[in-house]
């Protein structure tokens, strides 16, 4: 009897211990807050940037805002790290809006398009300070006529009777065909069934790819971005000076020197330089040179001459 009571006591103790162990284990296992860390990834101290004076830099709305941010924000980060300013990007709702921001002093500098710069220079006393190089190290870019690969369009003259999509009316690409090439081919925009301007170069590409338009004009760098899609380049413009970084004529020299010094210091011939610009917009991945207003005289003459002849 005593043995049985003792055995019962041992068993009870054993089961009690097992129950306590099971409950403890269950609590530990189902507490999923442990051991998983609440914070992952490196911490980054950003206080240095905040202490620097703000320098807003605008950009024309040649691309959708997300694309602009992805391509231009790394340039802002670079400038913040290599100048005494905290550079912030300001997007614009249009090409003209970017010029207005510059004129109103809301931005100290702006990445303008070639065409809008030529126009703004005449109206608002702005001047270029830098222009980008292309993959050949030349300070030029091109606009290209694109169509779908299977399209019968082989030359600009084949556009007669076709629907054509163009970027902003304030861009060189938006004016190249109407002002320079259509007259040379012997017809005008009004001879085409549809000529429509879109806000962004990418929108032109999408319209051509979808078949809504037979052809379109975009910057060469945008056409290259979609090179693996069903696109073919029909024709290219003659080389024109690249899209300039523009400041007001009375801009603080220190700002100009600071921006020029930082961007001209990039040497893309070195691996470090190439790595630095890897995330930048493709138009700016080959470095910069100093720009002057005279560099854009040829464009100015081309467009003005064609406009006059058209008139």
């Amino acid at each position: 009897m005593r043995n049985r009571t003792r055995a019962l006591l041992y068993l009870t103790g054993l089961f009690a211990a097992l129950a306590v162990a099971t409950i403890t284990l269950h609590t530990a296992v189902t507490d999923i807050s442990q051991p998983f860390p609440a914070v992952r990834g490196p911490a980054e101290e950003d206080s240095l940037r905040i202490q620097k004076p703000l320098l807003a830099i605008g950009v024309v709305s040649r691309y959708p805002p997300p694309v602009i941010y992805h391509g231009y924000q790394p340039i802002m980060d670079y400038l913040t790290d290599h100048t005494r300013y905290r550079c912030e990007l300001r997007t614009a709702s249009s090409y003209q809006d970017a010029v207005d921001q510059l004129v109103r002093g809301e931005v100290a500098a702006a990445f303008l398009g070639t065409y809008i710069y030529v126009r703004a220079h005449q109206q608002f006393l702005v001047r270029p300070i830098l222009k980008p190089l292309n993959e050949n190290g030349e300070p030029f870019s091109r606009s290209v006529l694109i169509t779908r690969t299977e399209s019968p369009i082989r030359a600009i003259r084949d556009l007669r009777g076709k629907r054509v999509a163009l970027p902003s009316q304030d861009s060189f690409s938006g004016n190249w065909l109407p002002l320079a090439e259509f007259p040379r081919a012997g017809f005008a925009s009004k001879d085409l069934p549809v000529v429509r301007h879109f806000s962004h170069h990418q929108s032109v590409v999408y319209q051509v790819l979808k078949g809504s338009f037979d052809a379109g004009v975009v910057k060469e760098r945008v056409a290259r971005e979609f090179g693996d899609r069903n696109l073919r380049i029909v024709s290219s413009s003659s080389p024109i000076p690249g899209s300039p970084l523009v400041v007001k004529r009375d801009c603080d020299t220190a700002i100009v020197q600071s921006l020029q010094g930082a961007l001209l210091a990039i040497d893309v011939r070195t691996p470090a330089g190439r790595e630095r610009v890897r995330q930048w917009d493709q138009e700016f991945r080959y470095g910069f040179v100093v720009a002057t207003d005279e560099d854009y005289d040829e464009v100015r003459a081309l467009l003005q001459g064609q406009r006059r002849s058209r008139e």
Partner: peptide, 9 residues
Amino acid sequence: QTDSLISAI
């Protein structure tokens, strides 16, 4: 303090 994604349970 971070530019990365953070998770917490």
